[in-house]
Structures are given as structure tokens and as C-alpha cells.
Design a binder for these strands. Structure first.
Lengths: 235, 235
DNA sequence: CACACTTTGTGCATAGCTTCACAAAGGTAC
DNA sequence: GTACCTTTGTGAAGCTATGCACAAAGTGTG
């Protein structure tokens, strides 16, 4: 495994930086719409909600695209970040599972905004197969491999129930997919070389609940004690 | 600001740890359903997809709940993590924006699983107001403050279009909310003391695209050069 | 009770990330 | 061209997170 070498100059962008590039890109697009031609790291940092030194260091990993004393050319920076993120090409995305969530994802406007295109929809329910959504007929899950291959799908979004997710993952990986966005609340087991990103509603809520509870504790000054487990469990 | 002190023993759990607790909780619930009484850090780590030393260190922040030579009692650990995350109490959640996404969220089963309850739904569209969803009528956004107050809502999920998100955030914060889960693709500006977590589809896709492109580059050995920007922009 | 075995909890080294602070570099004015 | 102003790009320091490796602490067996 030849990952994580001391990121020299070109090609070796830290994960933390990559995760923020989409944020910068969005802020820049907002500026561009408002007709702004150049922006300083300070202003862009405020728009993106980060520290300006961090922003500059992040951008420095892409190259030296700023002008000292002036700032960054908005359009040029948009282009450079887009290119680095691979958004100058077209990505065919398949959504597996056309339930409430799958429908929401398919209809999500920002989805197609830049570089992404819903190229296939799959479901196991024959009542849903054939239905049209965003100008696209839902295919039966049996067709998974052939349709993925035929339409050049390279990213798969899993929006199935938890129980089906691993099975779907195994099949799309066997079909050659190496990038998966998983909305099902399970930990997917995948071979090396396959990237999985997870979006998990209940995890986010639980993290919020933790902080909310903490705030409440601090106010009342009475955190629940670690004791009496048995009593609490009886309740 | 009295955050980020050297986390001593009790009360000072690292963010990275908090973010993983929901993961452990899910793995533990799976084990409990299968009737497992105790589990070693090694086995639980595999189920959660993390390193076992990391898991032990994470759990050590909650207290010393394992038994050397044996492992952790599954039910007891579920209880302790739940308590730490604040899931032993009931959280009333409001969803603002009953579009495709809002509906998907409201219907999402795992939502109510532990501690969370959809207590209110809001929309600005009078065509949607009054509609019933998961046994709950959609209220008009005008009622935001009064309904939040009346039903004891403490966590708000924003599932509106991007343009409305900041306005909604301002209003719910004014109504006393300090925990927001934002699905709209904008950076919310909020005062200190308010926690915002962001779930962003296109960000996740862009990160995947980055890694996918990288893999492709490595295979063909021909990364696109940084040159000719003008040409690419003309296309 | 002593010994062997298992598994936790944690000290320590390392890696990665963030932030400060400033020299270097470009622009502008005269 | 020189002097001044602005803003970048980055060295260095500090902080957080990760993972190894092992002592400490428990169980079970004879």
C-alpha cells in the first residue's frame, strides 16, 4: 500500500483539505454569481466559515494561484478547484433504492449542478420498476450489472434498507464500481481500493444530542450520575 | 470561551470519540439482537470497522466499563453509551421544509429508533400545510416559534431550499434552539453556543469524484495538466 | 494458591492538522 | 525607480488523534 507518503508538492492533497474544497467551491460560486472578480483569502475564509490561514494552506496544495497584494481570481480558482475535484468531467451516478430517500436524492437539484448526472435508478420492488423519475425509468435490481456497464456508471449511491446494503455493495463492486456513497445505516465491508463515504442521519442527530445534553447539564449543574444502572434499565 | 480544556477524566470527551460513539452503539445493538452477552474490544472493533486500540481508548473516556480477561457486557455498554450521548431522554425534533427530502427524513425509520421523535413539521407552501405525515399535521412556517415552544422542540432539522435556510436558522435560534442539523447547501452563520451539523450530498459526491479521478489518473498515468485554462473555459 | 491465559486500560511515539506570524512578492502612486 | 501598502505562501510551533505495545487485572484450572 503506497498511500500517505509525505505529501510533497503535486499530487498529495491531505484528506482534510479535500473535504473542504467543495465548501470553497460553493462559496466561490456564490461570489461569481454576484459578479465578484477577485477575492482575498480573508473574505473567502469568512464566506466558507474557516480560518484564513487554513484556507491559504489548503489552496497552496493545489498550486500557487493567488496574486500577492490582490487575492485570487474567482473564475480561475473555481476552475482550478473544479479540475482538482474532477468536476470538469461528467460523472454518471446510479441510485440504488427508490424509496423516500432515493426519490429525494434523484430530485435533489444540486445533484446535477456540476459534473454529476443521474444515469440509472434501481429498485427490487416490481411495483416501482418502470416508474419514471427525473426523465429516467427505474430498472429492476436484476439489471444492475448490465446497466451499470452499459451506461458507464462510476459512482453508486446506496439508498436501500440497511439489510440490503451490503449485498448491493458486493454486487456493484463485482461490477467494477470503486466509489460508493452509502446512506444505509450499516458499516459496509469492502476490499482495498474501494472508497465508501457514509451519510448517516441518526449519527448526526446523536452527536447533536450529546452536545445539547452537555449544554443542559452545564446550566442545571446536575449531570446524571454513573451509578444505578439497574434502576434506569428497569424503567 | 471555556471549550477545549485538557480533557481530564470525567466530562471532556474528544470530538473524534463522540463522532464514533453512535457507530459503536449501532454495532452493539446488532450484537444484542443476536443475543450476544459480552464482546471483546477486538470483536466490537471489527464490527464497527475501527482499530481495537482506538475503540478501547474511546470507551475509556466514558469510564472503565470493561472486565479484563472477559470484555464488555453488551447491554451495560449500550446503556452507558446511550446515557453519554443523551439518548436515555426523549428529544423532540422539528423538520422544517416538507419537500422530497423532508418527507424522506420524516419517514426514515431509524429516526425514531432511539430517543428521537418527530414533534413538528413546517412548510411555507400552503398546499402542503395541513397534510398529514407520520401521524403529524404539517404546520405553516408562521407558527414556527409558537409550535416549537409548545411542543418542547430542542433540535431542528433544516430541509428547505438553500435560499431559505439562513432565515429559518435565524428564527429558530431566536426561538431558543441551539442544535441544528442542516441539509441545505449553505454555510449557516450562527452565534456562539449554537451547534450546527451539516449533511451535504454534493460535498460527499465531490469528495468521491476526487478519489475516483485519482484512481483513473494512476491507471492511465496521464493526469490533466494545469496549463491551458482558457481553452478549457471556452468549452 | 499458583500458574497460565485473556483482555482491558494507557503511556508513549508518531502522524496529521491547525494556527500564528512573517518574509517574499506583487500592485499602486508619485 | 523608490517607497508604501496589501496579501499570499509557508516555516515553525502547538494541538489532536492514532496505533503500538505492555503492565495491570481479571478468569479459570488443577
Amino acid at each position: 500500500m503506497i498511500r500517505r507518503m509525505s505529501q510533497a508538492r503535486e499530487r498529495g492533497i491531505p484528506d482534510a483539505t479535500v473535504a473542504r474544497l467543495p465548501l470553497y467551491l460553493r462559496a466561490l460560486n456564490g461570489l461569481a454569481e454576484r459578479g465578484t472578480a477577485t477575492v482575498s483569502s480573508e473574505d473567502l475564509a469568512v464566506a466558507a466559515g474557516v480560518n484564513s490561514a487554513k484556507l491559504r494552506k489548503d489552496l497552496s496544495h493545489l498550486g500557487s494561484y493567488g496574486t500577492r497584494g490582490v487575492g485570487y481570481d474567482v473564475e480561475y480558482l473555481i476552475y482550478q478547484i473544479s479540475r482538482e475535484l474532477g468536476l470538469t468531467q461528467d460523472w454518471a451516478v446510479a441510485i440504488v433504492g427508490v424509496g423516500n430517500l432515493g426519490r429525494a436524492l434523484a430530485n435533489y437539484g444540486g445533484f446535477v449542478s456540476r459534473g454529476f448526472r443521474v444515469a440509472a435508478l434501481f429498485d427490487a420492488d416490481t411495483g416501482v420498476v418502470g416508474e419514471r423519475l427525473v426523465g429516467m425509468a427505474v430498472d429492476h435490481i436484476d439489471q444492475l450489472e448490465s446497466v451499470i456497464d452499459k451506461r458507464g456508471v462510476s459512482i453508486v449511491v446506496i439508498a436501500t434498507p440497511a439489510t440490503a446494503a451490503q449485498q448491493v455493495a458486493d454486487r456493484v463492486i463485482a461490477a467494477g464500481i470503486t466509489s460508493i456513497l452509502n446512506f444505509a445505516p450499516v458499516v459496509l465491508t469492502v476490499p482495498d481500493g474501494v472508497d465508501v463515504r457514509k451519510v448517516d442521519l441518526s449519527t448526526e442527530l446523536q452527536i447533536l444530542a450529546f452536545h445539547e445534553q452537555r449544554k443542559a447539564d452545564r446550566e442545571t449543574g446536575s449531570p446524571m450520575m454513573a451509578g444505578d444502572w439497574a434502576e434506569a434499565m428497569d424503567a
